[in-house]
Design a binder for these strands. Sequence first.
DNA 1: AAATAAGCTTTGATGTTCAAAATATTAGAA
DNA 2: TTCTAATATTTTGAACATCAAAGCTTATTT
Lengths: 148, 148
Amino acid sequence: MKKYSREESRAIINELLVEIFNRILAIEGQNLKDKGIKLSMSEIHVIEAINNVKEPTMSNVANKLGITISSLTTSINTLFQKGYVTRDRDIEDRRKVVVGLLPKALEVLKEHDDFHKEMIDSIFNDLELEKDHLLIESLEKLSSYFKK
Amino acid sequence: MKKYSREESRAIINELLVEIFNRILAIEGQNLKDKGIKLSMSEIHVIEAINNVKEPTMSNVANKLGITISSLTTSINTLFQKGYVTRDRDIEDRRKVVVGLLPKALEVLKEHDDFHKEMIDSIFNDLELEKDHLLIESLEKLSSYFKK
DNA sequence: AAATAAGCTTTGATGTTCAAAATATTAGAA
DNA sequence: TTCTAATATTTTGAACATCAAAGCTTATTT
């Protein structure tokens, strides 16, 4: 395995963050367009976040996405209006609003997951299975770094 | 250490990548605010792209960023007005507009690079060295995947 | 020279995001 | 219990970012 100097490593990661990140949304968006899904990327991300968060209240979902609650509200407004999500007050604590995914959203999620699956498989085809957990550990640290 | 199935690995990596990507712009933006730089992240990215592209015409810069030329035009309008960039017709081919960075922009670029350097160093300090290379290897694959 | 192409800007429209103010509900203090 | 403070969300108003389509200028083709 090639060894990188600290400086080389930094340059590679920098490139990922600055240049490649810009491509991802465009590629994903194009993929949706190709499949005839008429949702924006940020709407897709909202749906994903609802799916991935344990207790999908407005606060939890917004926090998962790294946007303000008010931003999420406007997004949920349209997703609700378009028939992708449910939106109900929590029975236990009626200050909370719990959102949920309707079948329409689950379909979109499936399409998007397939795209990601293909993407990630393509990236990690060469990695041996036993190394996966090391990678996950690294990414978890990266993720927790970005959370603080 | 826990073993993951291929499918579990994929799901976790997918979620972590999405999460990480969602945080980056927010953090970078906050960093600029902390330093009193009154530019948006997309304006920073335009400056970076101008710096990184070989021949900084409108088309080349827009292509580097993955946005349309008309979007870039509006961004350059304000960056020009604020005194960050130059904007001149190419002498050889007067259809082209060549943009360039003024000292003000180079300073911002330096700040931004320092931030990235610090961020990445901080990440690396938490990872054991042996895992650095696995992470880099994976990120390289990601990078090459998005270049095609 | 006339038609076509290339490069860019303008215009009009939509979508995203945030901060601040307003609303609703709950929890705690008096 | 009643008032107050805290929590959770929505509304409002404003700034950006982005795109498609139409228009302008310069280059290339025929």
